[in-house]
């Protein structure tokens, strides 16, 4: 196999990996404050992509321009959802919370189906069908820009989590909730904001990667599945692990489909997951 093709696939894998990393990191953020695995995580992103579609069809505003507004909208949606729905259900236990998010999957996917139909949709942007050629690499602009946004956001979020009072409070709640309460930390408030930021990031990322995806109502669950593989590979609840895991799974998927074709290649991330768990049952950076 020529080296150029291998390099091309690796770079493309890293770029997809950055996007996976951000999805997994925001899912880890939601997970860390309430112990809630949000199975509807990918569907929020799908919803954001359909939002970009509506925006384009109605106002002809480019998806990239709408991203900050979508962040704000999804942040509010996340906070509201946490306060009104998730928090009361979580009080009944994490299992009830998981069932709730599974329910949200169906609600969102069917909402999309009802509103927009079941056809495949592509949303054009200013960057659609353009490539950046840096011999020997040919990189589609939508993926390049989308992954750059994802990488910057993921790193920014990581820095916030590790270096700020807000981030420390989130980690404190994740590590010992009662002790966090004894510091006078307003647990519910921090949880709601964390949930809002997690969903808000999906609201931002959806539009900036929309040109790279073909939209369909059930795409959200696929994204959630990838994010779950990433989270478990990197170590459930570990922020750095989610980012590293994202890159690993992105590259594995890309090289897998290069070597073995689409069907077998799509299994490679799962193979990696099994392989990692065999040797490190808590994931690459998992503790306990």
């Amino acid at each position: 196999m020529p080296k150029e093709i291998l390099l091309q696939a690796a770079v493309q894998g890293l770029q997809m990996g950055a996007i996976y990393a951000l999805i997994a990191l925001s899912m880890t953020l939601v997970f860390s404050v309430g112990g809630l695995l949000n199975f509807a995580h990918g569907d929020f992103m799908a919803l954001a992509m359909y939002g970009a579609m509506v925006d384009y069809e109605a106002f002809k505003i480019d998806a990239y321009a709408i991203a900050p507004i979508m962040f704000a909208l999804f942040f509010l949606l996340g906070v509201l959802l946490f306060r009104r729905v998730v928090q009361p259900v979580l009080a009944a236990g994490v299992l009830a919370g998981a069932q709730l998010t599974l329910g949200l999957v169906f609600v969102q996917e069917n909402l999309i189906l009802v509103l927009f139909g079941g056809d495949y949709v592509n949303v054009p942007t200013v960057l659609s069908n353009r490539n950046l050629v840096v011999p020997p690499l040919v990189m589609p602009w939508p993926l390049l820009v989308g992954s750059a946004f994802a990488a910057v956001l993921a790193i920014a979020l990581y820095v916030v989590l590790m270096r700020t009072d807000f981030g420390r409070q989130i980690r404190a709640i994740a590590q010992n909730r009662d002790a966090a309460a004894l510091m006078g930390i307003r647990i519910g408030r921090i949880q709601a904001i964390a949930f809002g930021v997690g969903i808000g990031l999906l609201g931002f990322t959806g539009p900036v990667i929309v040109a790279q995806f073909t939209l369909m109502p059930t795409m959200g669950l696929d994204l959630t599945l990838i994010a779950l593989i990433v989270m478990v590979t990197g170590g459930l609840g570990n922020f750095l692990g989610s980012m590293i895991g994202g890159l690993i799974i992105g590259v594995a998927e890309s090289l897998g489909s290069l070597f073995y074709g689409g069907t077998v290649g799509a299994m490679i991330p799962y193979a990696i997951l099994v392989f990692v768990l065999l040797f490190r049952p808590h994931g690459l950076l998992g503790e306990h």
Partner: peptide, 12 residues
């Protein structure tokens, strides 16, 4: 309150 069992944040 400094709680029983210390309850420090272990991974910090």
């Amino acid at each position: 309150l400094v709680p029983e069992g210390r309850m420090v944040f272990p991974r910090m």
